[in-house]
Computed example of a mutant assay.
Amino acid sequence: MAISVFDLFKIGIGPSSSHTVGPMRAAALFATALRERGLLDQVRRVEVRLYGSLSATGVGHGTDRATLVGLMGEWPDRVDPKQIAPRIEALQASRELLLDGSHPV
């Protein structure tokens, strides 16, 4: 069985891809599932709880930002890393998260 370099390495936003890729993908999958099931319009609030090492070092390793951007519908291998900080700043200023990139929460 051949193993590709793409099987070994994942593209992530860093600084610690082990703390960003999984949470970002999980958040994006959650937002996508809501849209696909027609439930997006029913969402009024989102609460994220981190456990284990993600809760212990999440902010320092970017888990919080990765999760927020994932909830916005972005994926680790498709998001422009230069757009993350401005989007987080806009979210903090507006106090409004665009779930799946469209539904304000």
Score class of each variant (00 low, 15 high):
1 M>K: 12
3 I>H: 11
3 I>N: 10
3 I>S: 12
6 F>W: 08
8 L>C: 12
9 F>I: 15
9 F>Q: 12
11 I>Q: 12
12 G>T: 00
13 I>V: 15
16 S>Q: 10
17 S>F: 00
17 S>K: 13
17 S>R: 12
17 S>D: 13
19 H>Q: 13
19 H>R: 02
19 H>M: 14
19 H>N: 11
21 V>Y: 08
24 M>F: 04
25 R>F: 07
26 A>Y: 06
27 A>V: 09
30 F>A: 15
31 A>P: 07
34 L>V: 05
35 R>H: 11
36 E>N: 15
37 R>A: 14
37 R>W: 02
37 R>I: 00
39 L>A: 09
40 L>H: 02
40 L>M: 01
40 L>T: 01
46 V>R: 06
50 L>S: 08
50 L>F: 15
50 L>N: 05
51 Y>N: 06
51 Y>K: 11
51 Y>M: 11
51 Y>R: 11
51 Y>A: 14
51 Y>P: 00
52 G>M: 03
52 G>W: 03
53 S>P: 08
57 T>P: 00
61 H>R: 13
66 A>V: 05
67 T>Q: 08
67 T>C: 10
67 T>M: 04
67 T>H: 04
68 L>N: 07
68 L>H: 09
74 E>R: 11
76 P>E: 02
78 R>D: 08
81 P>H: 03
81 P>L: 03
81 P>G: 06
82 K>G: 06
82 K>W: 03
83 Q>T: 12
85 A>W: 01
86 P>Q: 04
87 R>W: 05
91 L>V: 07
92 Q>Y: 09
94 S>T: 14
95 R>N: 13
97 L>R: 09
98 L>P: 01
98 L>T: 00
104 P>N: 02
105 V>Q: 07
